[in-house]
């Protein structure tokens, strides 16, 4: 791990009119790290990554990628640099077969430069590269699954397809917005090794999750948000032991209430 963080988020604030969705959040992430972001519903997690990836403009604050200021750049430029994301509400191309879903990201300038996930700088036939990526990510090549229309697939495959869309760009950072939600325990269990493999491949990951148990298992560090502010940042053990986090998740009054009922 180099000393310079791959991504630095400095005092990022986003206000929607009167609502301050993200309030002065600062964190760094180093290469090949997995950073988990947790927080109750509406605590500003999605808004924060929308700010980082350029999908919305920050109200104030800075985002640095390898020391370079990328605040305010358009979303497609940021993706072109290698910072990709999945969407909390999945956005596959529903009317297309799965492998054709990947033809679109493979058409991008970045894919042309890098050749796709495993590509060595030269992009082959997009259909073939697309099927290769799908196979690596758990679509059985010899089955019909890669050729099926996306709208007919179960959630588990669609979540993988979201990841595959990022991988087609050969990204440096993938930001996953609730990639485990809506999946069964067994689907999550098969997804965890995939995440670990991406990390081994040298990809830096930011994972927003509500499924704390699995997240704590894969993450190197955890960031907790509440009402748009950073509550604590630390290793999974530190975060789990923290009093403030318990308060955030159960609420001090509610905790007392629960106690009195007990």
């Amino acid at each position: 791990m180099s000393n310079q963080p791959i991504l630095q988020v400095q005092e990022v604030t986003k206000a929607f009119g009167g609502v301050i969705a993200v309030n002065g959040v600062t964190f760094d992430i180093f290469e090949k790290e997995i950073l988990g972001i947790i927080g109750p519903n509406g605590s500003g997690k999605t808004t924060l990554i929308n700010c980082v990836t350029g999908f919305i403009n920050v109200t104030s604050g800075k985002v640095l990628f390898r020391g370079k200021n990328i605040t305010g750049r358009p979303a497609h430029k940021i993706a072109d640099m290698g910072i990709t994301r999945t969407f909390q509400i999945m956005r596959p191309y529903y009317s297309l077969p799965c492998y054709k879903n990947l033809v679109i990201p493979l058409f991008s300038p970045r894919a042309k430069r890098t050749g796709g996930w495993r590509g060595g700088g030269k992009l082959g036939d997009r259909d073939t590269v697309g099927i290769d990526i799908l196979e690596e990510i758990g679509f059985e090549r010899d089955s019909f699954v890669p050729y099926k229309i996306a709208s007919t697939l179960p959630t588990g495959y669609l979540k993988r397809l979201e990841l595959a869309r990022c991988l087609a760009l050969k990204p440096e950072i993938i930001i996953c917005d609730e990639i485990f939600s809506g999946l069964s325990m067994s689907e999550i269990a098969s997804m965890v090794p995939l995440i670990e493999r991406l990390q081994m491949d040298g990809i830096t990951l930011i994972m927003i999750e509500h499924r704390l148990r699995e997240l704590f298992r894969v993450s190197n560090r955890i960031l907790v948000l509440n009402f748009g502010e950073k509550v604590i940042e630390g290793t999974p053990e530190e975060v789990m032991a923290d009093e403030k986090v318990k308060e955030v998740y159960f609420g001090s009054e509610k905790a007392e209430e629960v106690m009195s009922h007990a």
């Binding site: 990709t84 994301r85 969407f87 191309y93 009317s95 033809v103």
Partner: peptide
């Protein structure tokens, strides 16, 4: 052609196109 798929993607799912590093 492949670019035709990109055009249709711009129509149906422009956010995903942006996330793929292409300017709509």
């Amino acid at each position: 052609l492949d670019i035709g798929l990109v055009f249709r993607a711009v129509k149906d799912n422009d956010q995903a196109v942006r996330a793929s590093g292409m300017s709509i």
